[in-house]
Write a protein that binds this DNA or RNA. Structure first.
Lengths: 208, 208
DNA sequence: CCCCGGCCATGACATCTGTCACGGATCTAG
DNA sequence: CTAGATCCGTGACAGATGTCATGGCCGGGG
């Protein structure tokens, strides 16, 4: 980089629970002259803490992390620091993208893309632009929004591990019959036959 | 590398369905003087075809791939070419390790490890040694084997997406009552309450 | 040989789950 | 205010699921 003033070093925080990809991305980014990886985090809470401490220019956040996921991290950081966030995800679905954008995320990149693109996206985002993967963006335009009501999503979430009706009812302080009713509505709306299929479909779409 | 004769270049085939980690690993490995990435594959079938065509020294295989998974690829290659295989996985469970070792895999590395270790493992494996992640190996020694019978595993697999009893019965050419009986045995053995919990537990343990 | 243990398969029965019709609460539009 | 729409909560009913007892089939000992 010959023009340090025109292109100052971009300070990047990296968060991904998968050690191999985290370290690989960090190594590749460090090869770029204008990018400085100042922190590597393995979960969402750590990412928030380090970001608030170090005030990076850009946060590169994996979506799937224990504790807080990438979008939740971005949402918290929006209120406390000025960093711009890029969310990277394995399962890039329109629902997830919508969630990310409404959390103020500046970049959205599926892990199916080449690692070489990451540096380019970081530069664009650091320069104030937004970047959304074109393919996902196209999908998001012509897709169906989640047809489930809030309470139905609660029920689905409470039963996503195969919990029994009685357990869900206890967790949400409802009568078992009410839970069954919600489940019934969910199955009808999603046009599937069992709870498990409803859970899989909703996870696939990024609704839960 | 000053001694090319003592350390000839290791020809590596790389297979991972996640483009970002595949390209990142390829880029890092190419920085090593003694490693040559000769192929990058996105799924198991492609990996088998390319391996048989190019005869690599080492195959670095992701476990989770569409089509054939990493262990299945290793199993096929064992009979056709001399390449040694390293399996890399996100969910490193004792059951998976056992499956991998009985397929003749020479190296086993979870994705929680640092990307820098990959090159070292490739060198050791290429030199004829075996490498198994010490942490997983320790787990594998003191663990419980799958208590389910073959037929019970069939039923579990056939119902892993939330299929209905009737659908499972049709898929396996059984009476619905028989399927319910197997399911009942599964739930008792795994000490869980629903099919979905049984599926999740078994996937977690690497049994299906 | 016969018995035993494991696995697979089946039908009857009890329980759980999904469906339906209903009432109450809240919000919006007219 | 009232009508309509939407969502939440509930109980009664039918059908699917899980449990149990039973029998056939094989392979390994006594």
């Amino acid at each position: 980089m010959t023009e340090e003033t025109a292109r100052p070093v971009i300070r990047v925080l990296l968060a991904d629970d998968e050690g191999m990809i985290r370290s690989a991305l960090a190594a590749l980014l460090r090869l770029e002259g204008d990018i400085d990886v100042i922190a590597e985090c393995a979960d969402g809470l750590q990412a928030v803490a380090e970001a608030e401490r170090l005030q990076p220019d850009v946060c590169l956040l994996d979506l799937e992390m224990p504790g807080l996921d990438g979008v939740e991290v971005a949402e918290r950081l929006r209120r406390t620091i000025a960093a711009r966030c890029v969310v990277v995800t394995r399962h890039a679905r329109p629902g997830v993208l919508r969630r990310a954008l409404s959390a103020g995320v500046a970049g959205f990149l599926p892990k199916s893309r080449d690692a070489g693109e990451v540096a380019a996206v970081i530069r664009r985002v650091a320069a104030g632009a937004r970047y959304v993967d074109p393919e996902i963006a196209a999908d998001a335009l012509s897709d169906e929004r989640c047809p489930l009501t809030d309470r139905e999503l609660d029920v689905l979430r409470a039963g996503r591990r195969g919990e029994t009706t009685a357990q869900i009812a206890r967790a949400l302080s409802l009568a078992p019959g009410t839970v069954r009713n919600h489940v019934s509505a969910i199955l009808a709306k999603l046009a599937v036959d069992t709870r498990q299929q409803a859970v899989l479909l909703s996870q696939d779409r990024g609704w839960i």
